[in-house]
Every structure is written in structure tokens, then in C-alpha cells.
Amino acid sequence: MILSVNHVTTYRYDAPMRFAVQSLRLFPSRFDGQRAVRWDVSVEGGLRGGSFRDGAGDKVEGWSLRGPVEEVRVLVSGEIETTDTAGVLRGHREVVNPLAYLRETDATWIDDALRDLAETASAGTTDNLDRAHRLSHAVSEAIAYVPGVTHARTTAAEALEQGEGVCQDHTHALIACARAVGMPARYVSGYLHATTDGTPHEAAHAWAEIWVGNIGWIGFDAANVCCADSNYIRLGSGLDAHEAAPIRGIAQGEGREEMEVSVALGQVQQ
């Protein structure tokens, strides 16, 4: 399937800023499940900085803007060919040892409730793949998809206690559960074309990858109770949403920031 992406992120400041710097992780991962036909990333009025592929396989690019900065627009546009690999991140080059993904972060802190959920769900199975599926299922049951009740800093434990959240919360909870039973797990950010039943979905998306010993990294989307397939476009990963953020930036000055995002995904007819 060939998917087209148009993604515009706009930051507006109510007072001009002196300087802005960004670190972008907005480039499609290279693995058997996806291949970029065309992909352009730019920051309007910005200067392109260093660019490299990090140890986790993500391409990162720095940008900067000289002041006065009143608005920053990050433009992504491209077409990408995707293939269903049943969630398996096959053919992805990375050097980070999976054990490095057992580390907890503030957002994925494992409290008793998360530990209970993980242990109950994985009781009676010794198979890691089975365990990962069960965890994903358990998290989707425990947290209902309800937009607007959580925020960017909600932790996995808080989302579970609330029983409601969005894809970020599902992903944090699934990562915490996986780590609780000793399985390395990470946060993946990217795009989702549509849910498998065909209903449209917020196109900027996040899901978890869990390390399953003899297979490798497998993408689990607890929000949609499925594995990442050809509807998913993978951009980058990290220990949690903050680390895996497609855009990390800072603007120096007194202005207050407002952000607006628009993402349009479509299937290109062949």
C-alpha cells in the first residue's frame, strides 16, 4: 500500500522569540515494512543543522531559527510504501541492546496496579509472544479510549487508575506492563492510516514495541488491539512519549507558545 502524508506543525508565539532550536525525528524508519518513495522535511525560515541516524535506527535532524521568531512551521510531506510484517520490525538496523529498554521513566513508572495487571495477564503462559499479546489485550480492556481526559504528562499509573485515555496512555501502560514482567519495551511514534475496521482515526499515532526474544521487536497497538501492520508508518522510538517525540524543540524568549497540528493521510491509488 502506498500512503501519502501531509503533516504540518505550527508553533505560534504571542511575543517574538529570540531563537528557536529543534531536533526532529520525523523520518520514516527503514525496515522491511516500509520504504519511502518521497519524503521531505523542512522548517520554514529555518537553517538545517546536523543530521544522523542514531543507535536505535532513527534519523534525527537539527534545525535552528534566528530571531525574531513569531511562528515556527514544521512541514512534512511524503509518500511511503508499506507492507504488512505482522508487527515484526524486520530488517531494521540498530545497535542498542534491548536490555536498555527495561529502564523505567517518570511516565512509565510501574506502580502496584500496573504490576498486578501485568502479572495477572501473563499468568499461566511461558511463551513471550503470547504474553505480549495478552498484555496488549489487558491494557486495552483496562483503559477505554476517551479523548480529552488525560494530558501530555499523564503517567501510565494515572491513566490506569482513571481507566480512560488516548493512544499515548495505552502505550505508556503497555510499556510499563511489559517491563514489569521483564520484557524490554519502547514507545513508537508515527502515523496511522485508519483502524483495521476501516473507521478513521487520529492520524498522528503512537504504539508500543515489545522485545520478544527469538523474533525481535514487535509493534503492539493496545489502543486498537492489534499489531502494527501496513496502515502504520513508523518514525522513531524512545523509552516513553517524551523521548520518542517527533519534534523536540525550544524557543528562547518571553512569549507563550501555542501549537497546532494538522495531519492528512491518504492512500495513493495505483
Partner: peptide
């Protein structure tokens, strides 16, 4: 942005 410069 220092780390992006460093790593590139």
C-alpha cells in the same frame, strides 16, 4: 541542540 551537532 548540542547533542545533534555532536552526533553529526
Amino acid at each position: 541542540g548540542l547533542m545533534d551537532v555532536y552526533r553529526s
